[in-house]
Each structure stands twice: as structure tokens, then as C-alpha cells.
Amino acid sequence: MQLTNRSKLVVNKQMTFWERIYLPAILKGMATTLKHMIRLTFGKSNTLRYPEVTKEFAPVYRGWHVLKRDAQGRENCTACGLCAVACPAEAITMVAEERQKGEEHLYREEKYAAVYEINMLRCIFCGLCEEACPKEAIFLTDRIVPSDYVRQDFVFGKDMLVEKMDQRIDITVRQMQVKERVAAKVAQ
């Protein structure tokens, strides 16, 4: 029974004289490589000169997490622990604490995460934490997690995760995507 029309009948035929001396085939191969060389010399190369030019990420790219602050600079996270529960790799740990008087400008809700750690070696960057988050506090960004020499340094604390006020991270595109995805799930 013929499944596809891609199958080829194998023939073990004797090579002709021109095939046996290889020279025509060699010249053909050299013409091919020369064509590539000429195309590159007079055309454009596909190489990206990396440190100067970076590749544009797809909008769905999931990298280094960020813990968002709101417009007044207060941390969104309320240490509910839903992200830790949702995390399939169990990469997230946190310690919750109650907000004291006079700390209203730091934390949005009455409870906050005193310690919030993501182990970047465990994380599989699935994005379930941002779907689980009810406070729009955690998002995955298009930043690449930097390399390091020591395993311990891959456990990112709040210093690495919470966004700095002078370097706000724009995640509006992602926010929209997450919202759409969650809405689609709810509709199901």
C-alpha cells in the first residue's frame, strides 16, 4: 500500500564515467558555495551583530519576572500566596507581614510580602503565576535572566524583582494578553 507519494525506488546503478571521476560534481558544489559567497558580498547578511543590535522578542516571550508597583509607587503584592500555589515548579516562596502605620505609601494593601523569592533555576517560565495573581502584581517580562557563577545567586529576592520607581517597566501589552487569556478561560 502506498502511503505517500514521497517514497523513492532505490536503484543501485553503476556510476557513469563522469560521475566516477567526481570532477563535474565537485565543480557543481563549488559553484553553489561561490553563489552563496557572491550573494553575501553584494547582498545583506542574516547575521545580527548581537551586543549592538538585539533581536526583537515575540510579544508572548516570558522572561525575568517583575513585581509591579501602582501609580503612587506602592507595591501591588499582598502576599496572598496564590502564585506560589499555582507554580508547577514550586519556585516561589514568600513571607507575609502586616502593614504598620506610616507604611501606607509603601504597600497598597494591609498585608505585604516581607520576603518574596523566585528560584530562577527552578522556574520554568510558564506564566501561571501572573494568571493566578488577583492583584496584577507579578508579570513576566522580555528581559533575559542574567547568567551567574553561583547557584545561590539565582534565587532572586525582592531587590531583583520589585520594579524601581526610576526605571518603571512597561507591561501593558502583557497585561492585556493576560486579561484576555483569563477572560477566555472564564468564558469556557
Binding site: 552563496h36 559567497m37 553575501l40 558580498t41 547578511s45 547575521t47
Partner: peptide, 13 residues
């Protein structure tokens, strides 16, 4: 350089 150009790369630069 020639190896790179024959293989659609740019080589040491």
C-alpha cells in the same frame, strides 16, 4: 572570512 562568506556568515569582525 572566506569560510564564513561561503556559509552565509560574516566571520571575525
Amino acid at each position: 572570512k572566506i569560510a564564513a562568506f561561503l556559509q552565509d556568515r560574516i566571520g571575525p569582525d
